[in-house]
């Protein structure tokens, strides 16, 4: 899941400073699950903006609306009536949703209400941890199901650096060394020999620019 957190209110207030009527746009997808941009957070932010502006004697009207997902055009369509009435939108979706919303409504300024942080797991209520960096070339089969890109601070592919001490990463004593985790897991699985295989460097060049995925076997010819 995509994990995001609400931006500090002062940043959001700065963005909407010139406007008198805005929409706070939520998403029932990942940002609801990570408690950053669902219907409840929309209500909280809207209240906060109204009160802050009221305090400055500069009232603002804030509409609230949440849709299924902001990364699908059909759902973004649901915002049309409300967006027609406002001067700007604060989106609480992830970076994807914010951009796609902006793209679909080119005449209305769209601002981010959250910082999109990482792809992670929800460990417990209020706790999230990064697990994947979407490198596009998964090596989890070679590393005991633990990702060296996401879990090693240096994204090393072939074993730890010299900063691995007592199972921890030199970055912080609270961060386990990703390669220690990989070693322990492979040992448990009896697959330590997998470590002998050299994983070649990944191509981070993005020679083709931003990634796209087109599956000719699925695309719909209308």
């Amino acid at each position: 899941m995509i994990v995001a957190e609400r931006k500090p209110i002062e940043k959001i207030l700065e963005m909407v400073a010139p406007y008198k009527k805005i929409l706070v746009a939520g998403c029932y997808g990942c940002v609801t699950v990570c408690l950053a941009g669902g219907e409840k957070e929309v209500g909280i932010l809207a209240s906060q903006i109204r009160m802050a502006r009221s305090k400055e004697d500069n009232p603002i009207e804030v509409l609230e609306q949440t849709v299924e997902r902001q990364c699908d055009a059909e759902y973004l369509e649901k915002f049309r009536d409300n967006i027609a009435q406002v001067e700007a939108v604060v989106s609480l979706a992830c970076g994807i949703g914010i951009q796609y919303l902006a793209e679909k409504y080119p005449k209305t300024p769209v601002f981010p209400g959250v910082n999109t942080l990482f792809l992670g797991a929800n460990i417990d209520v209020g706790k999230w941890e990064e697990r994947c960096m979407a490198c596009g070339d998964c090596v989890l089969d070679k590393t005991g199901g633990i990702c060296p890109i996401a879990r090693c601070s240096k994204h090393l592919l072939n074993g730890p650096c010299g900063g691995s001490q007592y199972g921890k990463c030199e970055v912080s004593k609270d961060v386990p060394c990703g390669w220690q985790l990989i070693y322990d897991r492979l040992k448990e699985l009896g697959q330590l020999d997998k470590l002998k295989e050299i994983i070649p460097p990944k191509n981070w060049l993005r020679a083709k620019g931003p990634r796209t995925l087109v599956r000719e076997d699925l695309t719909l010819e209308r």
């Binding site: 029932y28 997808g29 609801t32 699950v33 990570c34 669902g38 929800n122 417990d124 209520v125």
Partner: peptide, 12 residues
């Protein structure tokens, strides 16, 4: 329609 099956209630 509004449930994202996020497990927040389940855990809380």
């Amino acid at each position: 329609e509004k449930c994202a099956v996020c497990l927040t209630c389940y855990r809380s």
